[in-house]
């Protein structure tokens, strides 16, 4: 469905993203996980052709969606794709909703624009979608304005807008970060159901390892603008190969026995402006050797998994 190969993005002379490779099949949930500044949101923006700032551009690599190359696509074709065959869910629902328009009108507009539906049919479609999203009294909700709803409800409306044109791929960029845990759980369940029932492909971008554990089939771990490890979710959590992934898994409190401590990663995430030479993780890595300071490790593929580390394997 989606195939990203060796993607690199630059803003002028700054190269915040490079060597990003992954693929996503129908009915699959792929998680992109990383800390702030890892380039996970930028990856999503590149796929959507929404690179911020005028000088941002894809410098190399390819993005193929359903057999169509996206990096060379012109703007008007992209517009048909966005909101049509690719739906986007953002972190802050308020930025996706027009505060001056009724909910119904906003969701209708997507179907009218992309599927050429008549107004009446679009509204029926909207009510249908709101119903599948378990929104009570959908017809009534259509007549409300965004400010009359809670954060969790607004996020459901955003999901409804993403679904209105019956997309094949859903990109969700931190869809639950701004929400409370009980609301997050409901939204995650909703997304899960959508993937299973509609056979959607879901690209879930998050910083939260437990959300990944809960929902994803496969995971891409990003650090400092590179995909450093990927594989099936069980392998990533139970048998991580990259030292960063290993540390990241150890950072989250889970049922630790008494006296067991959280592991932490010394130092801080580098910013685009001070990326180190060689492997971007080497200043914080316990396994770093001389070669790590000079040579950038390439993604080494092994079946369904891949890792970019000179000393991959063996746990800490």
């Amino acid at each position: 469905m989606l195939e990203v190969k060796d993607l690199a993005v630059a803003f002028g002379s700054i190269a915040p993203l490079s060597g990003v490779t992954f693929s996503l099949a129908k009915g699959e949930t792929l998680g992109i996980v990383g800390e702030s500044g890892s380039g996970k949101s930028l990856t999503a923006m590149s796929i959507m052709g929404l690179l911020p700032m005028s000088d941002g551009r894809v410098t190399s690599g390819s993005i193929v969606f359903d057999g169509q190359e996206l990096t060379t696509l012109n703007e008007s074709d992209y517009c048909k794709l966005r909101g049509g065959r690719i739906g986007l869910i953002t972190q802050n629902p308020m930025t996706s909703l027009d505060p001056l328009k009724k909910i119904g009108t906003q969701v209708d507009a997507v179907a009218i624009l992309h599927l050429g539906m008549a107004k009446k049919k679009a509204r029926a479609n909207t009510v249908d979608i709101l119903h599948t999203l378990r929104i009570p009294e959908p017809a009534l909700i259509c007549e409300r304005y965004p400010h009359q709803m809670s954060g969790g409800m607004k996020q459901r409306i955003v999901i409804a807008m993403a679904l209105a044109a019956d997309p094949d791929l859903l990109i969700a960029d931190e869809p639950t970060t701004a929400l409370d845990v009980t609301v997050q759980a409901q939204i995650i369940r909703l997304l899960d159901d959508l993937v299973k029932q509609r056979g959607l492909a879901l690209l879930l971008i998050t910083h939260d390892m437990s959300v990944v554990a809960q929902t994803c089939d496969r995971v891409v771990v990003m650090y400092a603008g590179r995909a450093i490890e990927q594989g099936p979710v069980l392998d990533i959590f139970d048998n991580p190969q990259h030292p960063y992934t290993q540390a990241l898994v150890g950072c989250i409190p889970r049922d630790l026995k008494d006296g067991e401590k959280l592991t932490s990663i010394p130092g801080t995430v580098p910013t685009v402006l001070n990326y180190p030479e060689g492997c971007k993780f080497h200043p914080r890595c316990t396994r770093a050797q001389n070669i790590c300071t000079t040579v950038q490790p390439e993604l080494d593929r092994n079946g369904d998994s891949a890792v970019a580390c000179h000393f991959a394997g063996a746990s800490i």
Binding site: R189, D208, Q214, F237, D255
Partner: peptide, 25 residues
Amino acid sequence: ITLMNSTFVPDPKHRRVIRPLEGEV
């Protein structure tokens, strides 16, 4: 209990079964 069931564990082997929660705070 709702809060606990909504809190995911970072372990794909122990996924939560999320029950629908009616209404809002």
